[in-house]
Simulated scan of single mutants.
Amino acid sequence: MMNNSFGDKIGEGGCSEVFAWEGESNIVKIAKPNTSTAALQAELHHSRIAWECGLPVPQPFEMVDIEGQPGIVFERIYGESIMKRFLDRAAKRSEPQKPLHESDDYIEARVTGRLFHQIHSHSVANMPSQWANIKRDIVSAQYLSESDKAAVIALLDQLPIKYQLCHGDPNPNNILLREHDAVVIDWNNASSGNPEADLAEYIIMIRYAILPPQLPSEASVMLDATRENSIRLFMKEYEKLSGIGYAHIEPWIAPIAARKLSADGISESEKKLLVNEIKRRLHS
């Protein structure tokens, strides 16, 4: 793409590419062909709601058209994602000469727990229904039989419905750390619903994320050894603030895992792990 406003490419996901925009203070998030203008307009709307709530999010500015592809201009946030921190720590822990402080895990868990609680403390109008979004994604997911989809939806139907602001895709790649605070990006799936669903999504990502193949196998072993401790520390902080503990989230694991099977951004190997977990819960 040729445009004088562009700087370097910063990142890329399943639905968009991100470039520096008009200097170093802003970015532009440009939709890929698999993402509609309506989807980007919804993301801008959700981002503005989160910004107006005073949440730690990039300031959203405007829609732009880049050679026929829609984009959104945001404030640029400098920081590392939680997922990158996890991977870097796993790699360093696999090296005998690279000891790490346990406080790193605790600081990140505390910051992230507070961030989720801050988001979920709001209830806003004019947001999509979380329940409807989850059900739609389960119905469209591959890898599950129709009978298994029906069984997962039956589990979802038994869960209470709440009306709190939820991010909808709170995976560790969408949470950026700046020293000792956090910013959450990518609000395209935001909705009104249950905090437990957001928490289940975050836990699933930590529990089942597969390391990039270029990292040493020792790093994968070290990450596996710390996954559940990261979840425990995170939930301890969140429960202290909200009263919601892991037992409240357990019933959401199967529906959210089924929902994630329709996502573009996770590997086939991760989807197989999710299918196994769903089937175990349905048929145990």
Score class of each variant (00 low, 15 high):
Phe19Asn: 12
Asn174Gly: 09
Met1Lys: 11
Lys9Arg: 14
Ala209Thr: 09
Ile77Glu: 01
Ser16Asn: 07
Asn194Met: 09
Ala154Gln: 08
Val152Asp: 02
Arg259Leu: 11
Pro70Tyr: 02
Ser103Pro: 00
Glu218Trp: 02
Ser220Leu: 11
Leu87Ile: 11
Ala109Thr: 12
Pro96Val: 14
Leu165Cys: 08
Pro170Gly: 09
His180Phe: 06
Trp131Leu: 15
Ser16Lys: 08
Ser267Val: 03
Ala31Cys: 11
Ile161Cys: 06
Lys9Gln: 14
Asn188Cys: 13
His117Leu: 05
Ser269Cys: 01
Ala151Val: 01
Gln59Cys: 07
Glu277Gln: 10
Ala109Glu: 04
Gly7Tyr: 02
Val28Met: 07
Ser123His: 08
Tyr163Gly: 10
Asn194Trp: 13
Ala257His: 06
Pro33Leu: 13
Thr37Arg: 13
Arg93Ile: 09
Asp105Met: 15
Ile72Trp: 10
Glu102Gly: 03
Gly13His: 10
Gly113Tyr: 00
Lys272Gly: 08
Ile175Tyr: 08
Gly7Trp: 01
Leu155Thr: 04
Ile10Val: 15
Leu87Gly: 00
Leu55Tyr: 13
Glu24Ala: 02
Gln214Lys: 04
Lys236Ala: 15
Asp88Thr: 01
Lys32Cys: 12
Pro33Glu: 14
Pro195Phe: 03
Asn189Ser: 11
Cys166Glu: 07
Pro70Gln: 00
Ile153Leu: 06
Asp264Val: 07
Tyr163Val: 04
Leu87Pro: 00
Ala39Glu: 14
Leu211Pro: 07
His283Tyr: 08
Gln41Leu: 07
Pro58Phe: 07
Cys166His: 11
Ala151Glu: 05
His45Tyr: 08
Glu67Phe: 11
Gly243Met: 14
Lys135Trp: 08
Gln164Trp: 11
Glu62Gly: 00
Lys240Ala: 05
Trp252Thr: 12
Leu44Gly: 06
Gly243Gln: 15
Gly23Leu: 01
Ala209Gln: 12
Ser145Thr: 15
His120Arg: 02
Ser191Glu: 13
Val124Thr: 03
Cys15Tyr: 15
Trp131Asn: 15
Ala258Arg: 05
Ala258Ile: 00
Arg89Glu: 09
Phe6Ala: 04
Gly113Gln: 02
Arg227Val: 09
His248Asn: 15
Ile253Tyr: 01
Cys53Gly: 05
Ile66Phe: 12
Gly79Val: 02
Ile77Thr: 00
Val57Thr: 08
Ala219Ile: 05
Glu102Gln: 06
Asn4Trp: 01
Asn34Ser: 14
Tyr238His: 06
Ile82His: 05
Lys279His: 15
Ser191Phe: 14
Lys149Asp: 06
Ile278Trp: 10
Leu156Gly: 15
Gly113Asp: 10
Gln164Met: 06
Tyr163Leu: 03
Cys166Ser: 07
Ser140Trp: 00
Glu268Gln: 10
Glu196Phe: 07
Leu273Ala: 13
Tyr78Gly: 12
Lys260Ile: 05
Glu270Asn: 02
Pro33Asp: 12
Cys15Lys: 05
Ser16Met: 01
Pro60Glu: 07
Ile49Arg: 15
Gly11Asn: 11
Val152Asn: 04
Glu67Thr: 01
Trp21Pro: 14
Val124Cys: 04
Pro170Val: 04
Asn3Ser: 09
Ile77Gly: 00
Glu218Asn: 03
Trp131Ile: 15
Met83Ala: 10
Leu261Glu: 08
Glu146Thr: 06
Phe116Lys: 02
